[in-house]
């Protein structure tokens, strides 16, 4: 556009955004878009939490039907997805808060904290589900 013809005359050439399809995925960029995707998924999950609260307040019949949905294969898959999303968004959100404070910006540090977020998500999900299934089995 008009900016192209003026580019050479511009004393301060600004960097151009790389096109997404030709940009090699890196852990920092992949985790960044995953933070967004998990955030959107969790926003949908707030509706499930609301359903559960409304059902608990409504009474036995409503609560049992929500509970049996959550205990079904589809319900468990959704809960698994939301728990992964929550642990990821929680850990990566803390990583973002450190960045907001100006800490951990070095490439090495950002990559290391990224791998830590992935490891935390895996461990927390496994732990939550092994305890949760044991508790549910006892109920």
């Amino acid at each position: 556009m008009a900016a192209d013809s003026k580019a050479s005359a511009n004393p301060h050439p600004r960097p151009l955004s790389p096109h997404l399809q030709v940009y090699r995925p890196q852990i920092t960029s992949v985790l960044s878009i995953t933070h967004r995707a998990t955030g959107v998924a969790l926003a949908v999950g707030t509706l499930m939490l609301t359903c559960w609260l409304v059902a608990a307040a409504a009474g036995e019949a409503a609560f049992n039907s929500v509970n049996s949905f959550l205990g079904s294969t589809l319900g468990r898959l959704l809960l698994l997805g939301w728990s992964v999303a929550l642990f990821y968004h929680l850990a990566n959100g803390i990583r973002h808060l450190f960045w907001d404070a100006g800490l951990g910006f070095e490439l090495k540090a950002a990559e290391r904290s990224g791998w830590f977020v992935i490891a935390f998500t895996a461990v927390a999900t496994l732990l939550a589900w092994s305890i949760g299934l044991a508790v549910a089995g006892g109920n």
Binding site: F63, N67, G71, L90, G93, G132, L133, V135, A136
Partner: peptide, 24 residues
């Protein structure tokens, strides 16, 4: 809100797991 949600989300997850499959 993010800072507030760090402890609140952890608290809720622990509570929800403790009551997994519990009757009303």
């Amino acid at each position: 809100t993010a800072i507030a949600l760090v402890p609140l989300a952890v608290w809720f997850v622990v509570g929800a797991i403790a009551h997994a499959g519990a009757p009303l």
